[in-house]
Computed example of a mutant assay.
Amino acid sequence: MIFGLTFEKLLVIGVIAAMLLGPERLPKYAELLARAVKRGRVLLGTAKERMQDELGDDVDWRTLDPRQYDPRRIIREALLDDAPVAPAASASAAASPAPASRPVPETFRPGTVPPFDSEAT
């Protein structure tokens, strides 16, 4: 299904085109359509060969997928990722007194209600 066109829709378009063109011009336009399809296949084939020549055979297509840059997906993954783990304390840090630290905020989990401040603007 290309551009939402099903076989039935293509058949209706073909019948309408045949009626509009008439029996005299229909063979000429059918030949032009066949040539255009063949040329399109050749162009796609050469583009595919050129891409394989330039990128090689061991291409990871997932890295070239433009859907990975969808802002909605990036934000969703950032919100649902686990909180980063604090690095382990080294021996030199253990010898010095620990500075007063802020409490670590809870991570957002799916299905929980995030905190809400009614006075915030």
Rank of each mutant, 00 (worst) to 15 (best):
F7R: 10
T112L: 03
P110R: 06
T63M: 10
E106V: 00
S92N: 14
A34H: 14
A88G: 08
M1H: 12
G56S: 09
G56T: 05
S90T: 15
D53E: 15
G22E: 01
T121I: 10
A94W: 07
D65V: 01
Y29G: 02
D65A: 08
A18T: 12
V85A: 15
S92H: 09
D70A: 05
A98V: 12
S118D: 13
R67D: 09
A18K: 02
L33H: 15
E8C: 05
P87L: 13
E31V: 06
L80Y: 02
A100I: 14
A100H: 09
P99I: 05
E49M: 11
E119W: 13
L26D: 02
F116W: 12
A83H: 04
S92E: 13
I13D: 05
S101G: 10
L11P: 01
D53G: 14
L80F: 08
P66A: 07
M1D: 13
A30M: 11
D65T: 00
P103K: 02
P99T: 08
G111E: 05
T46D: 06
P105R: 01
A89Y: 11
A94N: 13
P103A: 08
L64V: 08
S90R: 14
R25V: 06
A36P: 04
E49V: 03
I75T: 00
G40V: 04
D53L: 14
V37D: 06
Q68G: 13
R102Y: 08
E49F: 12
Y69C: 01
S101D: 09
D57N: 14
I74T: 09
P27A: 11
T6I: 05
R41D: 11
L33D: 13
I74S: 04
G56A: 06
